[in-house]
Nucleic acid binder design. Structure first.
Lengths: 233, 233
DNA sequence: CGCCGCATTATGTGCATACATAAAGCCACG
DNA sequence: CGTGGCTTTATGTATGCACATAATGCGGCG
């Protein structure tokens, strides 16, 4: 059963994946340690380590020092989502992108927004509302609050040529953030802008980004009905 | 500017991230090559390589042989989604999980399903419909088709004790699959089962998994209103 | 002047080795 | 009999080196 030596880490990774899928190593079971596998595969332990690390990143192995590596029992399917700039997303569909700025003003945010962004209740934030278009039709509606203290340049931007979505990604560095997806019924206002029936089910993305302790921007993007977020496993 | 030597790859990674965020290395710009960075940081090139690879995986660097590494211009925010078994998801919320099997029968799938799963139009598939409950209330409704040829054991499972969701993840290996998220209005049937108003906006997950060339299962899970899929950036 | 191919160069990977670190589990001691 | 601490072990990582691979871009040739 000692086939040809598996000398590169991708081969080792693939062989490990095969054994897991084929149940040669059953869920919950401890697999041989790196040194033994290295001997079996005829390669260096470093190579086995690289391979096992890759498998563990996919969630199919649980690794712990001293305890060894065991096959994950209920591997949470992990999907790597790429959330591109909306312009890119539209263009990737072979459609023509455009955007229309609906509103741009300085305003005090509602209490929920102020709390989420951790800014004083009366603080003036920049509010931008804009429609993203694909082939001239509504694609998504964006409702955004920008912390102009964290993003100084934003106050000077009109956002009529470059969308705030895109401008911020290029110009507002962030250290971390959260994204949430949900479904929501279209309000009367949204229905009018997006061009759908009132009460239609909209796919909604909420994103809040931070630069250290300061919030950068909070945005809600409601996509036109039919929008799907796809990914491969 | 030669601070204390950055000897481990995490430090190097963090320093690289800092420089990108601080615009010391501007978007689109070519960064120094690995060898030079290794000299600057006082570590081996291998270590720099490991660090840059990690940054590239986050999407903040584009690396190409010979061309070098350049800072990504529009880094598509990449989020790693973990889609756990529903029972785990509910329990992670500190709620009590239960599930109720609504239907389990062998049937010929509608044409759209047959085509998506690439099975003959008249083929008999196992259909399972079940409700997932949290603290006794509806959490999600699952409508599933199982290819019993690809998953032999499934025909003998009643799915009344262990949900098909969980049983399949443990027992049906797959090589790849697709997931799509969308929003959909609750049909009359769904509304009744989930206990929401008809026409409510539901967050829907569609998953189709494959084992090589054979489809394993196709499932649509509609979550109760208010459900959010969260992830960090 | 244009195009092709090869030299150059930056990243990608494998290996042997050494040491770091976490933690399981045993043993001695109370 | 319980427990704290030490030993052992498996993974984690740093390093120097060598060679693989891709692709750029220059130089030579038609």
């Amino acid at each position: 059963m000692t086939g040809p030596a598996l000398r590169d880490w991708r081969s080792v990774r693939d062989e490990v994946l095969r054994r897991i899928r084929a149940r040669e190593w059953a869920p919950g079971e401890l697999i041989p340690n790196e040194a033994d596998l290295a001997v079996e595969f005829g390669c260096a332990r470093t190579t086995v380590n690289r391979a096992l690390r890759a498998v563990a990143e996919r969630g199919l192995l649980d690794r712990r020092r001293k305890a060894g590596s065991r096959v994950a029992v209920l591997p949470a399917a992990t999907a790597k989502l790429a959330i591109p700039v909306i312009r890119k997303e539209v263009e990737a569909l072979g459609r023509t992108y455009a955007h229309r700025l609906m509103e741009r003003c300085e305003a005090a945010p509602p209490e929920t927004v102020a709390r989420a962004m951790r800014v004083p209740a009366g603080a003036g934030l920049l509010r931008v509302r804009a429609l993203h278009l694909a082939d001239g039709g509504p694609y998504a509606f964006e409702d955004r609050w920008i912390n102009t203290i964290a993003v100084p340049g934003a106050a000077d931007q009109s956002f009529d040529r470059v969308s705030s979505n895109e401008w911020l990604l290029e110009n507002a560095p962030y250290t971390h953030g959260e994204i949430a997806f949900s479904a929501s019924k279209a309000s009367a206002g949204e229905a009018g802008l997006i061009g759908c029936a009132r009460g239609a089910a909209l796919f909604v993305l909420d994103r809040l980004t931070w630069d250290g302790a300061a919030s950068v921007t909070k945005v809600r993007i409601a996509f036109a009905p039919g929008h799907r977020l796809r990914t491969v496993l």
